[in-house]
Design a protein around this nucleic acid. Structure first.
Ligand SMILES: [Zn+2]
Ligand SMILES: [Zn+2]
Lengths: 375, 375
DNA sequence: AGGAAACTATATCCA
DNA sequence: TCTATACTTCCAAGT
């Protein structure tokens, strides 16, 4: 918690590739955005700062403007519901409180979290985070840039920002004026609740922010930018996070590390909730954990190889075991009762061992096996 | 945390069966102490209060007195080491702090633990705990009876008792005079540290208390009673807790639920520490979780059946797979991809090798030789 | 006197 | 557009 890196919003890929929004596809494609293009460049160098908006191509600017206008319209529609919704949110706040954290903040406080997982994770994260210098705030950012890693969820669901070095970069005016008091999760979070102020996309000037991303991941981004940058703003299931970013269950469960959005399980609503994570948050942590995209890819391939090897070994052993098992089970009685006696082997048809490709004959009396293939 | 039941020390089996101290034996035997004797009696009724000491048989009283005298002697031996040990304990306290909890206590406080596991567990525990009425304190108890479920470990390793309804039953005099300030874990905890006051066994009047049980589980019990009641005071490893009481890892890790004693791994000292739990504490929770010994046994047998069924299904499928595999390979490989050298061995009559005396068959096509004698 | 992470397979349930 | 559990495997630290 000492001096974490800036929020994930500061991490941007210079050339925003407009990949299709399918975020649950092949594992090999998930974190290749930066690697395939520039595999030799270290992570810290490959990650650029936000580009100024006027540097964007004309079509992108046009789309941004469209989004902005659409957002204004949509916002007017929502406006009339805000007051009533706020009271609803408070009701739900008592029913569905977010997981809360220990109240004391900072590392100097005495009140620490205790679970072994959390402690261990926290230590790892701190170590990982301190390797990255805190970046100064972007000039174009007009709203207070909340850094999730510096927030503590209280039981009430409000956010309290822990002041540190980074705050000196944020204009006091903004940090006061744009203070965000998020409301709580509710069953149908498609409607934004309790916003007293306007929100602007952190990647453009549109105010058509995705309320779900804002609510559940505290990232103000517009619909257009969300769809335009799936490598940042697409959602992943917990299982995908594990598979694609090699994160462990304790990590993904730790609310100090990630926020997640629980939704009814699409497979069957009575099953466990689906847990959705925001890609940029997951990716940020995964890159810290594994050492950039290259490290992640390396580990991924390593495990892939290990998995392959394991499967082969297991298959071989399984086969051998089964062969023994069937042989003994079939001929055990005979062999147990009878002394080793001399007999002429009675071999039946040849079976092909799929593992080695060798054909094998087995004696029906004693079970001895002989390979047919001779060299 | 709301109004937990009395400490595990209040739960006693009326007839203390002197089972042998083997606590790591068969799973089926582990929680049969109360069930086999009185399987039809519900748990709440089968658990009696402590019997008064004078009701005990003469031999037990004699043993108690013996223990008491032995304890006095042993205590004198330890006495001279207390001061120096205390400073050592403080040193170790900085090196090996116990896992700490959130500082705020009680259910009304705002600072809660947050991990989803803990919250979930806590909710379950509260629900389970509130089903049991808090029992009044026993008359014979002369020392402050610490209730683990009301204690919060601070980072410093000191104990802070959270006051609640039960306190009105404890005499103020005792609660002040007998205040216990436990010292920290140290590598060799066989020596008790920092006891300013005397402790008396909670099951008899002996003061030969087991310092390890007192230190790590906050249960003052003498060596004699400890050994006489393994169904209450024997230790279990974490793995055993999982297997015998069907507790989950998150539960066992939760320091709100159990205290545990970490010791170097007996298998290999460089491995993860062995974690020891006190049976009565584990059992108490497990019975709450599963609904008494009967519920536990029922669940245990259910899982046993499931496990068996799973294994059978798996084996059958495995076998079928192999059969399919070999069959296809027999019919397919033989005809489809017949290699030039594959052939069925054509063994003739067995010949006896004059040198070794072994009977040998030889393929007339390839010349491979096979011994006929099988063991 | 083992424990926890990683991996694979499987069932998933509660008002 | 899934997740928790049960099960298997391997396990450390200082130079
Ligand atoms: Zn935008
Ligand atoms: Zn005793």
């Amino acid at each position: 918690m000492a001096s974490p890196p800036p929020a994930s919003s500061d991490l941007t890929v210079p050339s925003t590739s407009t990949t299709s929004s399918g975020d649950s596809t092949a594992k090999t494609d998930s974190h290749s955005t930066t690697t395939t293009n520039a595999p030799s460049i270290p992570y810290e160098e490959s990650v650029g700062r936000h580009v100024s908006r006027k540097e964007l191509p004309a079509d992108v600017q046009a789309r941004i403007e469209r989004n902005r206008l659409a957002a204004l319209e949509r916002r007017a529609k929502y406006q009339k519901r805000l007051d009533s919704e706020r009271s609803i949110a408070q009701q739900f706040g008592e029913v569905l409180p977010l997981p809360s954290l220990a109240s004391a903040g900072g590392e100097s406080g005495a009140g620490y979290l205790t679970s072994a997982i959390i402690e261990k994770n926290a230590a790892e994260i701190h170590k990982a985070m301190e390797e990255v210098e805190p970046l100064p705030k972007n000039e174009w950012t007009k709203f207070y840039d909340y850094d999730l890693s510096k927030m503590k969820d209280t039981r009430a669901g409000f956010i309290q920002v822990i002041d540190d070095d980074k705050k000196r970069d944020a204009e006091d005016e903004n940090s006061k004026k744009r203070k965000w008091e998020p409301t709580l999760a509710q069953p149908d979070p498609s409607i934004f609740l309790g916003a007293d102020d306007n929100y602007e996309c952190q990647d453009c000037t549109s105010i058509d922010v995705d309320f779900q991303l804002l609510r559940y991941f505290h990232v103000p981004v517009c619909i257009g930018c969300r769809d335009a940058q799936p490598e940042k703003y697409s959602l992943l299931t917990k299982t995908e996070c594990r598979a694609d970013y090699l994160l462990t269950d304790p990590e993904l469960r730790d609310t100090d590390l990630f926020s997640f959005w629980e939704r009814p399980n699409p497979k069957k609503s009575t099953w466990n909730n689906m847990m959705l994570y925001l890609r940029c948050q997951v990716e940020e942590f995964a890159f810290k954990k594994w050492g950039g995209p290259e490290g992640l890819d390396k580990e991924f391939e390593k495990r892939e190889r290990e998995k392959e090897a394991r499967k082969e070994v297991k298959f071989k052993k399984e086969l051998r075991d089964l062969r023994n098992k069937t042989r003994t089970s079939v001929w055990q009685d005979k062999r147990m009762q009878q002394r080793p006696k001399i007999h002429k082997h009675n071999f039946g048809t040849a079976l092909v061992d799929p593992e080695s490709g060798a054909s094998v004959q087995t004696c029906v009396e004693c079970g001895i096996q002989v390979e047919c293939e001779e060299f």
